[in-house]
Design a protein around this nucleic acid. Sequence first.
DNA 1: GAGTGGTCTAGACCACTGA
DNA 2: CAGTGGTCTAGACCACTCG
Lengths: 261, 261
Amino acid sequence: MPSAAVPATEPPLAASGRPEGGASPAFSPLYQQIKTLMTRSLRVGEWRPGEAIPSEIELAARFKVSQGTVRKAIDELSAENLLVRRQGKGTFVATHAEQKNQYRFLRLMPDGDEAGRVQRRFIDCRRLRSPADVARALALKPGDAVVNVRRVLTFNAVPVVFDDIWLPGQLFKGLTAERLSDYKGPMYGLFESEFGVHMIRADEKIRAVAADAVSAPALAVEAGHPLLSVERLSFTYDDKPVEFRHGLYNTAGYHYRNALS
Amino acid sequence: MPSAAVPATEPPLAASGRPEGGASPAFSPLYQQIKTLMTRSLRVGEWRPGEAIPSEIELAARFKVSQGTVRKAIDELSAENLLVRRQGKGTFVATHAEQKNQYRFLRLMPDGDEAGRVQRRFIDCRRLRSPADVARALALKPGDAVVNVRRVLTFNAVPVVFDDIWLPGQLFKGLTAERLSDYKGPMYGLFESEFGVHMIRADEKIRAVAADAVSAPALAVEAGHPLLSVERLSFTYDDKPVEFRHGLYNTAGYHYRNALS
DNA sequence: GAGTGGTCTAGACCACTGA
DNA sequence: CAGTGGTCTAGACCACTCG
């Protein structure tokens, strides 16, 4: 039960949140304020990926609200995949290192049944100055330091995905091809444990394109072969963009799955 | 306040749902049972798309549970987009006819800003016997009657989407090209109001393909041009498949957007 | 003002986990 | 067994909509 790093007192809750508060210019429910405070604890690293957060009863005491209010805050954070509840055990900070989350962001599936072994092969990892489009996506200034990683994913030894990845240099100091290759598990797991960057969500733009001189050899297809182009912008806490990635998928025998609801 | 069609009594709730119930072989919480009952009311058409369902207090009385339990059931149905809550007004059955849901299932967006005018042009609408693959997807027997619709969507008069749509003949008796053309609004709105079929969710499989002899002229591109292939299986209540659709999208100037979380 | 959904509380008890 | 999250209840009050 680690409770050392917990501040003795919390900032007072906004008056407007309590029912007694005056009128309602920008009313914010209590559980929303609790949610914000908890997100802050996640962002600053008071609670780390994989660890248990304090119990609902403890949090209720700490925030001076009822357990039900804490519960509603946790419910939402859990629906957003920031936390994971485990009955009888506690509530834990979500992590990309878990088995279940291994492929949370990789939507490519084989058409048939067999799962297939996924392997990562890193082509290069360079530090350089940000091109204009990357800077815009990552909310950097053009010319700021960025890290560019290129890699291929193989399914059963067949190259299927070619990724061109851009990261803010400031956050990823010391990222090298060796560290990428040596790490067992998904890249986002390494980002989390080695650089303290936790990917929360991402937006993707998908198009059909023709393989060009760079991608064709990497995926062992002829130039002009149709490929799925997947442009991804990933965010950490507070909607801060921290990864810009352009993927090219060979969808012969595979498909990008999506659930609409 | 329509209350005529409401049955005077509800079937008794499973004993295991009440805390006093014996052991717990397949324990199901009360709110889950309420959810099932409410889904049934939706499926059989007691509550129709666009209409208000009874208030939480009424439902609590009807099901003989507390308002909080009904609330939790509605919360989940609302999260699944089956119901829509409107503070101060009531809770309503979701409908595809609403402005907000117009493009809930169409994820194609222009790369730039302008929204663009969407137009639907129907190529044909035929009744025929189901091919094997369509039958499998729709859980029909091969040879069962199906309706096949083909259409093109244009954005600002430019053809962008070519859809090949398959529907169970049993459910869509009397669907013709005229009715499709005459209907103002999205196709799922017509399915809902004219055939009582409400699409709840869908699964899509996305690939990159080359335009062939059929799709190339329809989308005004050359054969071999890369297109996004979107295979969609749509479901109504109780995970019953009711539409199988193969779309081809020209993603020059457009993209399929997706949010990962 | 009456009726709706939305928030918050306090308390009881259940289901699950692990020592 | 104690401790965790999960369910259910009853009641109070707030915010919103509309007549």
